[in-house]
Simulated assay, not measured.
Amino acid sequence: MQMPGTNDAGNRAPDPGDIERSVVRWLRDELNDPEITGSDNFLDVGGHSLTFSKLNQFLGDSFGAVLDMRTTYEEPLGVAVTKTQPVESTTSITR
């Protein structure tokens, strides 16, 4: 039985506020713009597909979550963060 506030693995679900602060901090560093806030739009601050991919890699590694591209491109960052999804477990491909 899953406890409230936990994910399927029984770990505490990440706090959206923590994710938003991390996204803003990461984007400020990546785009060299200390003025970025959660009310900004990803594309308007200079984000693009490569930035999005790198940001999702960071979020997956840090929080086990990823952003939806459409929401991130169309909505303010704070809204996009509320719609993060858990990283799907993938199987490695052997050669």
Rank of each mutant, 00 (worst) to 15 (best):
residue 1 M to C: 15
residue 2 Q to S: 14
residue 2 Q to P: 05
residue 2 Q to M: 11
residue 8 D to S: 10
residue 10 G to F: 01
residue 12 R to D: 12
residue 12 R to P: 11
residue 13 A to N: 07
residue 13 A to V: 08
residue 14 P to V: 01
residue 14 P to A: 00
residue 15 D to S: 12
residue 16 P to A: 02
residue 17 G to A: 05
residue 17 G to H: 03
residue 19 I to T: 00
residue 19 I to Q: 03
residue 20 E to M: 04
residue 21 R to G: 11
residue 22 S to F: 03
residue 23 V to L: 08
residue 23 V to F: 03
residue 24 V to L: 00
residue 25 R to P: 00
residue 28 R to E: 15
residue 29 D to F: 09
residue 29 D to L: 04
residue 35 E to L: 04
residue 37 T to G: 15
residue 38 G to D: 00
residue 38 G to W: 00
residue 39 S to C: 11
residue 41 N to W: 12
residue 43 L to I: 04
residue 47 G to Q: 01
residue 48 H to G: 02
residue 50 L to S: 03
residue 51 T to N: 09
residue 51 T to Q: 11
residue 52 F to Y: 14
residue 53 S to T: 15
residue 53 S to E: 14
residue 53 S to H: 14
residue 54 K to D: 08
residue 54 K to C: 11
residue 55 L to I: 00
residue 57 Q to W: 11
residue 57 Q to T: 13
residue 60 G to F: 08
residue 61 D to R: 09
residue 61 D to P: 14
residue 64 G to M: 05
residue 64 G to N: 06
residue 66 V to P: 10
residue 67 L to S: 05
residue 67 L to W: 03
residue 69 M to A: 14
residue 69 M to S: 10
residue 70 R to P: 09
residue 71 T to P: 04
residue 73 Y to I: 02
residue 75 E to K: 10
residue 81 V to G: 03
residue 82 T to K: 15
residue 83 K to H: 06
residue 86 P to T: 03
residue 88 E to G: 14
residue 88 E to L: 12
residue 89 S to T: 06
residue 91 T to M: 11
residue 91 T to I: 13
residue 95 R to K: 15
